[in-house]
């Protein structure tokens, strides 16, 4: 049962297996995102009060979802790397940081663009938006830490600890709109119960969220593969790979 886990520890095995998933993930994310964008922007009905400006939700919500979920991926990889000393997990952690930072930035940026016409301001220091900004700084901190030590072991350890410390922020971001008075509205999509959104508007959002998940997996695999090649540059199989045929 543990065989796959030990195999996962081998960067070479992972590189070969992940290569087979790439075209499928690329296809799935492209189909889902194109469908979701066209459906959400052109065919979904407009909102009774916000008009067309609500359509930015089709980017804002999926990006925020993956910014949060991506942090758990990064922290879990950091923990696995720390406990089992698995090289591959360390690579996944480092590969997840820039991706998460980009998604968090997209969430903050689209939120600002959406906030101006609806709330009347681009930015407000409420609990949701501030904790999301902290998430961006955590991601940036991990990117910076991963490049600021001369020995790889030290930097990996520092990154893993920061990633674990930062996990406390994720439930805070998620629950901030319920725990405190904020300008940001509570969640539309709930874990329990129906979404407070008309089904015609919700379906394209669901497609976009699935598309973003596939896209996240695709980019994470690509980033991890790059990291593998960078770190295993001396291994024979990488040299063979780089050899012109």
């Amino acid at each position: 049962m543990w065989q796959w886990f030990h195999k996962l520890g081998s960067p070479r095995w992972f590189y070969q297996i992940s290569g087979k998933f790439l075209p499928w993930l690329a296809l799935a994310s492209m189909v889902l995102i194109v469908t979701g964008v066209v459906w959400g922007l052109a065919f979904a009905p407009e909102d009774a009060r916000q008009g067309n400006s609500f359509r930015i939700i089709y980017i804002h919500v999926p990006a925020s979802f993956l910014a949060l979920a991506g942090y758990y991926v990064m922290a879990a990889a950091g923990a696995v790397g720390m406990i089992w000393k698995m090289k591959l997990a360390d690579m996944v952690m480092v590969a997840a940081a820039p991706l998460g930072a980009a998604l968090t930035f997209i969430a903050l940026f689209t939120g600002a663009v959406w906030g101006k016409p609806t709330w009347g301001t681009y930015w407000i220091w409420d609990a949701r938006i501030t904790s999301m900004l902290v998430l961006l700084f955590l991601y940036i901190g991990i990117i910076a830490l991963s490049r600021s030590f001369s020995t790889r072991e030290t930097s990996t350890r520092a990154c893993a600890i920061l990633a674990l410390v930062g996990t406390v922020n994720i439930p805070i971001i998620y629950k901030s709109v319920d725990w405190w008075y904020t300008l940001h509205q509570p969640a539309t999509i709930k874990l329990t119960g129906a979404p407070s959104m008309h089904p015609d508007m919700f379906k394209p959002l669901l497609v976009m969220i699935l598309g973003f998940y596939c896209f996240y997996a695709l980019v994470l695999l690509l980033n991890t593969r790059t990291e593998i090649l960078l770190r295993e540059g001396r291994a024979t199989w990488v040299k063979e790979l780089a050899q012109p045929k």
């Binding site: 009905p45 407009e46 909102d47 009774a48 009060r49 916000q50 609500f54 939700i57 609806t118 709330w119 009347g120 301001t121 407000i124 300008l183 509205q185 509570p186 969640a187 539309t188 407070s196 959104m197 008309h198 015609d200 508007m201």
Partner: peptide
């Protein structure tokens, strides 16, 4: 300054 706070519900007109 006065800001509008909208809720989490979205409905077609």
């Amino acid at each position: 300054q006065v800001l509008a706070k909208h809720d989490e519900e979205y409905t077609p007109p």
